[in-house]
Amino acid sequence: MDTDKILKELQQDVAGLKESSQNKLSMVVFSGDMDKLLASFIIASGAAAMGMDVVMFFTFWGTPALRDKKKKAGGKDIFGKMFGVMLPKGPSKVKLSKMHMAGAGTAMMKYLMKKKNVSSLEDMIALAGELGVRIYICELSMGLMGFSHDEMIDYPGLEFVGVAKFLEEAGASRIQLFI
């Protein structure tokens, strides 16, 4: 038996496995709900602390949560303006998925979070940036909802991408989540 040949094949297989499964977490953040966004960022920063490479892809209702409430974007058509007004403008404006109760529930949750020293969504985004969590925003969602790049938050290395970029990252990740 040709042990050298077998050994070489095994080494190639191991190298391939290492390549296909890096210590990486890829997350699709589809939801624009405050609770789900908070959970996403807690998992992301926790994973970064565990030494993982972390990538978050924001798409659909997750996209407006990354708008900057201080920034203004002009030149929108009627649909863009409508989405702009109807969707939350940034992380401080998102609502709970349950018990929002016309704002009372979300306000109560924010009060409790402060009282129990749980970081706000804004703080969690800043922490993720500090930890090197990468954020990608779906270009299709941006275009569909009429958002412009200029109205998104300042975040280190923020990129606007398509689905292939997500699949490339997810394909090489040990964990993939859809939130």
Partner: peptide
């Protein structure tokens, strides 16, 4: 003391 998840682990790792 007083820090909530995930900050204890994040601060320790840093």
């Amino acid at each position: 003391k007083g820090l909530a998840c995930p900050l204890p682990v994040v601060r320790v790792s840093q």
